[in-house]
């Protein structure tokens, strides 16, 4: 059975007077991969950043409406708790340039001042890196700086960093748009693996990718959630003709 983990009701977000997310209602089931699609500038990133309260870091940004995780309002919690429960991976890989690979993985603990025994740290690092299929590649250079890795490796390092915090939900904002095809497919395989333990919400422009990796797909248009359904249905038999137009490439 499906239980809902993230739910929004009448959710709106704006930059100053620029209203970019309009009345979004959505139920996101646990342990699924959700793809978020839509033309550029339609508010996908903004909505995603509202889920873990990164949106409010931008001066002048506001939001209203209901957004819950496990039926608790995210906007009643402190952002620190929200972000520990809902991890995020960004479009461009952004490992901490001053930290080694090892420290990058453990950054959520180390930089937060959480002291762990060495064995436990080693376990988390190995576990997280194995999860993102990076362990074999970097296990001999854990003390090198994270920025020495290739783009795809850096992105997987960032995913490992988010995974190490054991969140419940992972948000991805176009995680593969800065990567080459091989790295992209490695990351895509990851999504399947991660699904067992986490709920993934992935913003992507790549329709094949959405079709390949996601269970459900949400289509945004001009700030509105136009359609939200099983990915198979969305790609074979969309109900809204805006979705239809988008999928068939009539506008981009």
């Amino acid at each position: 059975m499906e239980s809902t983990i993230i739910k929004s009701r009448n959710f709106n977000a704006s930059f100053g007077s620029n209203h970019v997310v309009k009345n979004v209602n959505i139920d996101i089931p646990r342990n699924h991969v959700i793809a978020v699609m839509g033309p550029s500038g339609c508010g996908k990133t903004t909505y995603l950043r509202c889920i873990n309260r990164m949106h409010e870091l931008i001066p002048g940004a506001t939001s209203e409406g209901e957004m819950t995780i496990n039926n608790e309002n995210i906007y009643d919690m402190h952002p620190i708790f929200v972000r520990q429960k809902i991890g995020m991976v960004f479009q461009r890989p952004n490992p901490f340039p001053n930290l080694s690979i090892y420290d990058n993985v453990i950054a959520g603990y180390k930089l937060n001042g959480i002291k762990l025994p060495k064995a436990e740290r080693d376990r988390i690092v190995e576990h997280s890196l194995t999860r993102v299929a990076l362990w074999k590649e970097v296990k001999d250079s854990l003390n090198k700086k994270g920025s020495f890795l290739s783009g795809g490796q850096q992105q997987r390092l960032c995913i490992a960093r988010a995974v190490a915090m054991e969140p419940e939900v992972l948000l991805f904002d176009e995680p593969t748009s800065a990567l080459d095809p091989i790295s992209t497919s490695t990351v895509e395989e990851l999504f399947h693996e991660l699904k067992a333990n986490y709920t993934l919400i992935i913003v992507t422009h790549n329709m094949q990718q959405a079709a390949r990796v996601s269970d459900k797909t949400a289509f945004f248009y001009l700030g509105e959630l136009v359609e939200y359904d099983e990915t198979k249905i969305m790609f074979t038999n969309p109900k809204d003709n805006r979705t239809q137009n988008y999928i068939t490439g009539r506008f981009s």
Binding site: R53, E56, L57, I58, P59, E72, Y75, D76, M77, H78, P79, F81, Q84, K85, E166, P167, E168, N197
Partner: peptide
Amino acid sequence: MDTSAKNSVITRSDLPLRVIN
């Protein structure tokens, strides 16, 4: 950039962080 000025009410429901094993 002020993150916590609004919405910084801490409810008890924040408590359960997920524990894997």
